[in-house]
Nucleic acid binder design. Structure first.
Lengths: 166, 166
DNA sequence: AGCGCGATGTTCGAATTCGAAGCAGTACAC
DNA sequence: GTGTACTGCTTCGAATTCGAACATCGCGCT
């Protein structure tokens, strides 16, 4: 099948370290968020994305896609956040079938409360052993990868190949 | 509390891209593994670690620690893998309380069957937009971070590893 | 030797996650 | 205008995940 199905030792090391580093980082961050604001990582990501938006709101699908989450999972999490008063859900003006999620003041407050500790963890774990230039280099390497991944197969490549004319 | 715990835009970008890239990669890999060998990512990681070991075996705790997983979760997964005939569990000769997990021939076979596709996905998604030097640079950046994270105590409680002689 | 402390793995209950199926709303061809 | 396909979100059931409580074993201390 494939010609040479093996990675360089260097590639392998980079891949493993990538997975391991993010696993550890995620784990540490998760604990900090839980302690400081009773939030899961996904919930924090959602609030952060909403808070970062100019309008403070996003569509459900865009949120799910942004944080790489299943639709149903997002419905569940949005319900939790709404019940906690951190976001509000409302039908979209344009598309009646869309639901627009908007962060509330309480949501922004919680985000602000949690953020310093979060940043502290990330700084202490991820950026501690990296110089300023290192970080710049890292960012410069990851950005194209992110672009590439985002533009390759959007998220569904094999349900039905109806319109495979492209 | 602290002075001004905010991250540079560059740091922030690197952090977000890191999370996003691994999320997307993990997702893609997970699907490939599910289709090609009916394995979850954790199961694959466990088999890979066992297959990579000179003895083909590891203690439960070391496995859990290695893949950043909870003990109880590992018990569950080990049970699944054992039921599928991919690994064997046996009490350790030295420590009667330890359980040694060993990969079976079937496990190695499945690993070998799944690996090419796995590597293909990783190559196509992660390494495609990176040159050889880029990968080398990336590996050089991540390795120290990994070391740092591994050697840093988990903030509050500290289930330390055995006091290693080093 | 006896005792307590730490380490190891498992069980248990609760929370989360995902995919498939279902329900609306929208676009588009005819 | 009507029918069909497609998108966006939710419900539902099943599988996984974690932390806390539990039983056991090993080790150091007196």
């Amino acid at each position: 099948m494939s010609d040479s199905p093996s990675l360089d030792p260097v590639q392998l090391g980079a891949y493993f370290d990538l997975i391991e580093v993010t696993s550890l980082l995620r784990h540490a961050v998760e604990q900090q968020l839980r302690e400081s604001g009773d939030l899961s990582y996904v919930q924090f990501q959602l609030l952060a994305r909403l808070g970062d938006s100019p309008t403070g709101s996003h569509r459900m699908t865009d949120l799910a896609d942004g944080v790489v989450y299943s639709r149903s999972g997002l419905t569940y999490q949005a319900g939790l956040l709404e019940k906690a008063g951190l976001v509000v859900r409302a039908p979209s003006p344009d598309d009646e079938r869309s639901v627009t999620v908007t962060i509330t003041d309480a949501g922004r407050a919680l985000l602000a409360k949690v953020l310093p500790g979060h940043i502290e963890v990330v700084s202490g774990l991820l950026f501690e052993p990296l110089s300023r230039d290192d970080v710049k280099t890292l960012a410069g390497l990851l950005a194209p990868v992110r672009e590439h991944m985002r533009s390759t197969p959007p998220r569904s490549a094999a349900p039905r190949r109806r319109k495979d004319g492209a």
